[in-house]
Design a protein around this nucleic acid. Structure first.
Lengths: 210, 210
DNA sequence: TTATTAACGTTAATTAATTAACGTTGACTA
DNA sequence: TAGTCAACGTTAATTAATTAACGTTAATAA
């Protein structure tokens, strides 16, 4: 299969989000301009994106949502459950746990870890918290594929090392620290503060023009 | 001045982050390969980026950090304080408030808003929570430039409308909802769940290659 | 039946971003 | 004082991503 561009994949998750609600509302078809409006891009872009997935629509009805979703998931999601773990049960960690509560069928956070004895053995949003010392054993046994790091910057590398040793294939890092990972482990860096700073910058710049 | 590419601006905040700690540690100069390692890009990219800001370095010492920072802030940050407000004091909101505690001199979250009477008038990380009903008046009076939305998706558009009416120029939206904003208001969409889903996808894809 | 039309699907053109190439600089050394 | 070298700075080449253009399709209605 032909390679799908990064950006396209990102948009696909957003299309998907919208289609889910649409499907629930009983819709069977969707037009490119509807998808476009829903995620804030141009209809041309939508059609361009859909081409990559070989999805066909008709001028009269648009694209069949069911097929869309099936095709989409066949590309974007494994058939089996992808297990994730979360390291660091602070405010951000708790927020993420609550977001992921029964959201996607084949993707879930199966455990959380923290060093604070106060938090260990508690359950947040249906997710059990274990002591950080158990992490490696647990991840290796459960074959968790992704680790989410929400610890302070100073502890991020250590957390990453543990996750890598235990065999995760991807890491989502919320700590403002540049992680050193072996090749083959996917890294998604998500610095919230940085994003807000960026927005503040562009908000100032965006004056007259558009 | 020549226009600076989006991506470059994003990287600049990361360079800046690193340089800050470097400066504190007493460093005066920095090489492109050091910056590159610190933020995870190639040295060529760093030099390319620095070109946009007309920053000069010498082969022997690299770039002078002080000048770098000065130049950088003159572009990226206003001289006066940029005020931001946060709407929705849930776990994510609290996390953001704590991150922004005395982090940048000219950028701060001056107030938070929530509808829950339980939270109103409390103080989180040095930030006072007001009732959502006060938002418009407050934002207009204080001339806050950026609004950060951390409410549930169903309430996001309403929050955005209030912020826009009160005159913000930029919005950072964490809710998984496509906001409709008038042109001229900068929007930064930050869907955490989506990012994690994306990472899970790429983690599965990244097998042998790379 | 055929004209109309709205939206698709593809190719092409443009623009943005990254990577590579390579000449330049200036401290250091023989 | 000339050679070396590491890192800069610029231009050029490549690649990725977006936007535009336009022919195609099939339902509808004259």
């Amino acid at each position: 299969m032909t390679r799908i561009p990064q950006r396209t994949v990102e948009r696909f998750f957003r299309y998907c989000q919208f289609l889910h609600s649409r499907l629930e509302a009983g819709g069977e078809f969707v037009f490119s301009h509807e998808l476009a409006a829903a995620v804030g891009v141009s209809p041309e872009q939508v059609r361009r994106d859909l081409m990559n997935f070989r999805l066909k629509g008709t001028p009269q009805r648009g694209y069949p949502i069911k097929e869309f979703m099936t095709e989409l998931y066949s590309h974007l999601e494994s058939e089996s459950l992808t297990k994730m773990v979360l390291v660091g049960v602070g405010n951000l960690g708790k927020a993420i746990l609550s977001y992921f509560l029964k959201r996607r069928p084949n993707l879930s956070i199966v455990a959380a870890f923290d060093q604070d004895p106060e938090k260990v053995n508690r359950v947040y949003s249906g997710c059990q918290v274990h002591h950080i010392g158990q992490l490696e054993k647990f991840v290796a046994r459960e074959k968790a594929a992704v680790g989410i790091i929400t610890v302070p910057a100073s502890a991020a590398q250590e957390a990453a090392d543990m996750l890598v040793r235990a065999g995760v294939r991807g890491i989502v890092n919320f700590a403002p620290a540049q992680l050193k990972l072996p090749p083959g482990v996917f890294l998604e860096q998500l610095d919230i503060t940085l994003s807000i700073e960026k927005a503040a910058y562009f908000a100032r710049k965006t004056k007259i023009k558009e």
